[in-house]
Simulated scan of single mutants.
Amino acid sequence: MYDIRPNFIIGFHGCEESVRDKLINRPNEIINSNKPYDWLGHGMYFWENNYTRAQFWAEEKKNNGKITRPAVLGAVIHLGYCCDFLDSKYIRLIQHYYNSYKDLSDLTGDELPKNKDVPNDAHNDKLLRILDCAVIEYMHKSISDTWEKEIEAVGNSLTKVFDTTRGVFTEGGPAFEGAGLFEKSHIQVCVRNPNCIKGFFIPREEVEFPQVDSTKYV
């Protein structure tokens, strides 16, 4: 009953300026990430309502020599049928698929992937989420396979394929000494169904807006 997220969100994607401009001009040419360490599986990634985090991410990529002109792309996103790890229901779901994935790995004799730290990460945040990505992709494939089998057998299916995946992450060091808040905490959205992206935009800079002194009219 509550699986469909009815609202729109604003997402921000840090990237090379040329990538931003290409998507503004040719918005159907969606660029998905298919890296084995993607935190929420494969798809197009956005920081939810977090322009500053997207900007910092792009600037970090420039400092590391990965891009030359950092930019931020905005998007209007409808989450649709969302595997939302802020919802306890989906934590239980991914636990189920982890157990299934582990059983399969034990059966085939394959070593279970592990999340790993990147070099020089002082906070040991396990930024390479190889295990998480493998389990999430295993979940998506299992659901998709069930959907296809039901369609082939009876022409329809009650199985629903996820449009998006969403999660909250605590990252970086404490915001201040003794804090339970962390410098890089954020909500991340991975869009699998490109139709959930309703449009792209170049974010505006905020301008000063004069405030009316209401006491003058009393």
Rank of each mutant, 00 (worst) to 15 (best):
V72K: 06
N34G: 09
L131K: 11
D132Q: 04
P27S: 07
I24C: 00
K102F: 14
L104C: 05
G41Y: 11
I30L: 06
R69D: 15
K114C: 12
K35P: 00
K62F: 08
N50S: 14
T52Y: 15
F8D: 10
D87H: 13
I30T: 04
I67R: 04
D84P: 00
R20P: 03
L127M: 14
G11A: 00
K89E: 12
G41A: 07
P36V: 06
S100V: 13
C15E: 03
K114Q: 11
N25L: 13
I10S: 05
G65C: 10
K61T: 01
L131S: 04
S105R: 14
L93N: 13
H96V: 14
A54S: 05
V76M: 07
G43P: 01
L79S: 01
M44Q: 08
D21E: 15
F12N: 03
A71F: 04
T108A: 10
F8A: 10
E111M: 12
C133T: 00
N64S: 13
Y45C: 00
K66V: 09
A75N: 01
G65M: 12
I94M: 06
Y37E: 07
D103H: 10
S18E: 13
N7G: 14
N49Y: 06
Y98A: 01
V76E: 04
Y97N: 03
L128Y: 07
E16H: 10
L104K: 13
I30D: 01
A54V: 01
K89W: 10
I94C: 01
I24F: 06
V76F: 08
T108K: 12
R5P: 03
F12C: 00
H123L: 04
K89H: 12
V76C: 06
L93G: 09
Y97S: 01
L107E: 15
I91V: 15
R129C: 07
H78T: 05
L104Y: 12
D103E: 10
H13Q: 06
L128T: 02
